[in-house]
Amino acid sequence: NQESVVAAVLIPINTALTVGMMTTRVVSPTGIPAEDIPRLISMQVNQVVPMGTTLMPDMVKGYAP
């Protein structure tokens, strides 16, 4: 099972992602793959992401799977 990126904290809208904001977990449905965390650093979320929420591609500005 592939791990997906999950919010480790509440991430406010338009916040640039940092390593500490993200964790990984096997979830269903799957979100952004864990191995993409290095690509996500400094990208901004386009909505509020509650802690424990799986990051989906459409939540991150400029992210393309």
Rank of each mutant, 00 (worst) to 15 (best):
N14P: 01
V26F: 06
T18K: 07
L40Y: 02
V49Q: 01
V9M: 12
P57Q: 07
E35P: 06
E3A: 06
V48L: 15
S42D: 15
G52D: 09
N1E: 12
T53Y: 12
P65D: 08
A8S: 10
M59Y: 13
V6F: 02
S4F: 04
E35S: 12
L10I: 13
V5Y: 01
M21V: 04
S42L: 12
P12M: 08
P33W: 07
A7W: 02
L17D: 01
M51K: 13
V26L: 11
N14C: 13
L55I: 13
I13A: 11
T53K: 11
I37M: 08
G31S: 03
P50N: 15
T18Q: 11
R25T: 07
M56K: 09
G52L: 09
K61E: 12
V26A: 13
T24N: 10
I13D: 13
G20S: 14
L55Y: 01
T30Y: 15
P50W: 10
L55R: 00
N14M: 10
A7G: 04
A7N: 01
I41G: 03
M56F: 10
A34R: 07
V27L: 05
L55H: 00
A7D: 01
S4E: 00
V49K: 00
D58F: 10
P65L: 03
N1I: 07
A8P: 01
V26G: 06
G20C: 06
R25N: 14
V45P: 02
D36G: 13
V27W: 03
T15S: 07
M56E: 05
K61Y: 08
M56Y: 10
M22H: 01
M21T: 03
V48I: 14
T54E: 02
I37C: 04
G62Q: 09
V48R: 09
I11F: 02
I32P: 00
T53V: 11
I13R: 09
V9A: 14
L55N: 01
R25I: 03
I13H: 12
P50S: 12
P12R: 09
T30E: 14
N46I: 12
T15G: 10
P57C: 11
T53P: 00
V48E: 07
Q47E: 13
A7F: 02
V9E: 05
V49Y: 01
A34D: 11
V48T: 11
P38M: 14
V6E: 03
R25C: 03
T18C: 05
I32Q: 00
T23P: 01
L55G: 00
E3I: 05
V5A: 15
Y63S: 03
I41T: 14
V27M: 13
V19R: 09
I32S: 02
V45D: 00
I11K: 00
Y63H: 04
R39G: 04
A8D: 10
E35N: 10
T18S: 11
V6H: 03
I11A: 00
I11W: 01
N1W: 03
R25L: 05
L40F: 02
M22S: 01
A16I: 14
A64F: 14
M21Q: 08
L17N: 00
G62L: 08
T23L: 10
M43F: 15
Q2E: 14
M21K: 03
K61M: 09
T24R: 11
T53Q: 08
P38S: 08
G31D: 01
P57W: 11
S42K: 10
Q44H: 13
T54Q: 04
L40A: 01
R25M: 04
Q2C: 03
